[in-house]
């Protein structure tokens, strides 16, 4: 673990979707390697955005460029028209509870992602959330392309880094509020290399099957955090890559719901610490806090040393004891 490792990784494993605009070459490379690619959209009440996602992906990534071989919407039991709309535009729609019925049904996004591994047959599974307003084929090809071109990459995360307005030069970068307030500080303390992921919580990622089948899936908010720790412990930072997909427009969340999300993530984080036997053997905590800044398409970490030093209780200080007439400590 070192800063130079992070810098090197940022240089070689961080992409911009624009690098993969040539879909024809991408499809050829996929075919040459004999890879099958599956796309999974987990849903719960997304009738407003699901239709467009399906239309765009099907037209651009199946009909026009055969990059995606199969495509499923896995729903946790929407009570709006999500399933109906998705089916109307020709997606294979599954109720999560119908997949692997012997394993029961739990309601949560992680459940859908997990069941997708069983339902879909691709060598690479790409997950894309259904709440994206500005959907575009890059949300898929930007994530699967690094896996198609690089055999040693296994898990590609999306990040989004195009502010609506920016005057130029160096800009602060990074993830959403939960990432910056909770996850990045935790990673900085315990898994500093994982801070290289600019948006560890983004819901869009592409993963090889051999990785998906070897890790557990929290059902709720913690699924992304837990994945990242597990893949890192098994395969190291080299297994990851990340792609800048520019802007993602979605609904904004209230602070209260971010609190719920943080609680779930913290549970998963502590679970992983327990699984790796780290709870009572905390590693030496790092004093370096790692954030991001960006200039154009170049990302670099801004490392700040933050030492929370501590003072003992005042009653243990001899001068204090003397001044206030307390007997000296033996």
């Amino acid at each position: 673990m070192s800063s130079s490792n992070i810098e090197k990784w940022l240089e070689t494993n961080t992409f911009h979707h624009g690098q993969f605009w040539d879909l024809l070459s991408l499809v050829r490379e996929k075919e040459r390697k004999g890879l099958k690619i599956s796309l999974c959209i987990p849903t719960l009440n997304e009738e407003k955005t699901i239709g467009k996602e399906i239309v765009i992906f099907k037209s651009e990534l199946m009909d026009r460029y055969p990059l995606v071989d199969e495509f499923a919407v896995i729903d946790s039991g929407s009570d709006d028209k999500t399933q109906e709309v998705a089916a109307a535009f020709g997606a294979d729609v599954y109720f999560s509870g119908d997949i692997l019925p012997n394993q029961g049904f739990k309601r949560g996004k992680g459940e859908n992602l997990w069941k997708a591994i069983h339902q879909l047959e691709g060598d690479i599974v790409c997950y894309v959330d259904a709440d994206i307003k500005n959907i575009h084929p890059r949300f898929v090809y930007g994530l699967v392309a690094p896996l198609i071109y690089n055999d040693d990459m296994h898990y590609v995360k999306a990040f989004y880094d195009r502010p609506m307005a920016f005057s130029g030069g160096i800009r602060p970068s990074g993830g959403g509020r939960v990432t910056e307030i909770l996850v990045r500080p935790l990673f900085s303390l315990f898994f500093p290399e994982l801070t290289s992921l600019i948006q560890p919580l983004s819901g869009e990622y592409a993963v090889r099957r051999e990785v998906l089948q070897e890790i557990p899936f929290p059902i709720g908010y913690g699924v992304e955090t837990s994945h990242i720790i597990d893949v890192y412990m098994k395969r190291g930072l080299e297994a990851f890559a990340q792609t800048d997909l520019d802007q993602r427009v979605h609904r904004n969340q209230t602070t209260l719901s971010l609190g719920k999300m943080s609680f779930g993530i913290l549970q998963s984080f502590l679970n992983r610490m327990e699984a790796y036997d780290m709870v009572d053997k905390l590693p030496e905590m790092s004093n370096l806090f790692r954030q991001f800044q960006a200039e154009g398409n170049r990302y670099e970490q801004v490392v700040k040393e933050i030492i929370e030093e501590e003072r003992p209780p005042m009653e243990t200080i001899p001068e204090y004891r003397e001044k206030f007439g307390l007997p000296p400590l033996s």
């Binding site: 399906i54 239309v55 765009i56 099907k58 037209s59 651009e60 535009f89 020709g90 500005n134 575009h136």
Partner: peptide, 14 residues
């Protein structure tokens, strides 16, 4: 050709 036509319309519209 529904998806192709609609996808073109969405992209031209957006």
């Amino acid at each position: 050709l529904r998806e192709i036509i609609l996808a073109n319309t969405v992209m031209c519209g957006e």
